[in-house]
Amino acid sequence: MRITGHPVLPDLPADEVGFTFNGEPYTAREGEPVAATLLANGVRQLRVSPVAVEPRGIYCGIGHCYECRVWLNNDTQVRACLTPATEGDSFASERTEE
């Protein structure tokens, strides 16, 4: 799903930041939000909704809707559409009990 060889825009730097989402490893471009990396790898579902238990993913893409919220290092809920990964981060749809 990555866009390469864009006719107008220059190419972006290559992937280099390693993180996991629900235990699976991914490689992000520096500064790229986690949701974009996941979509580039074909992952659309980021969590399930609490009441209807429906799959949810990117909706607004700019931090307004909180639909893309995921757990960062089992500690903080973050918006996947805004938050870039740093090396070794672990993101997950659900928080796990310690």
Binding site: S49, P50, V51, A52, E54, Y59, Y66
Partner: peptide, 9 residues
């Protein structure tokens, strides 16, 4: 269909 996506209303 959903109206409020946060609270599943």
């Amino acid at each position: 269909h959903m109206i409020c996506r946060c609270e599943d209303v």
